[in-house]
Amino acid sequence: MNEGTHGTWVILLTLLVAAVLAVLPLAHSLAWWRPEWMLLTLVYWAIALPHRVGLLSALAVGLIVDVLEGAPIGQNMLALGLVVSLAGLMYQRVRVFTMVQQAGVIFVLAGIHQLVVQWLQGLQGLSPSGFLFLLPALTSALLWPLVMPLLRGLRRNFRVI
């Protein structure tokens, strides 16, 4: 097993689970509360393994999210690509942050993601939703303290490097 390809299946599996959670049917009243599972997973891997998960992975995952959501191809590619690039710029700082600070960073990143998506939806003529679109950023940030230790445990247990 050569350096740098160990445990790819763990990354893919976590992304698959995130994809399932992202399309899990939810009551319509709760739809805005759904956290951005794919973003959470992707940002974790981008911060933990920046040499493996970067812009290209973000574009690939974005393509999948676009097809799953029925959005025009490129919408989530752009938003996730931007967010992962930002995460790649500051992974060294984020790693030493406390959990609360990290959650704050996730709120900002998910907020940027939602903003870009909202902007692109405006271009397509979909009605704006007020500030509701920031709710997923909030729930994503609140879930980070649960998701991060879980993914870190997986990464350490299966020695994904």
Partner: peptide, 17 residues
């Protein structure tokens, strides 16, 4: 990075228009 943005812009335009 710039290349990625360009690619995405082309894809979006292709899909929307």
């Amino acid at each position: 990075m710039g290349l990625g943005a360009l690619l995405v812009a082309v894809l979006l335009a292709a899909d929307l228009r």
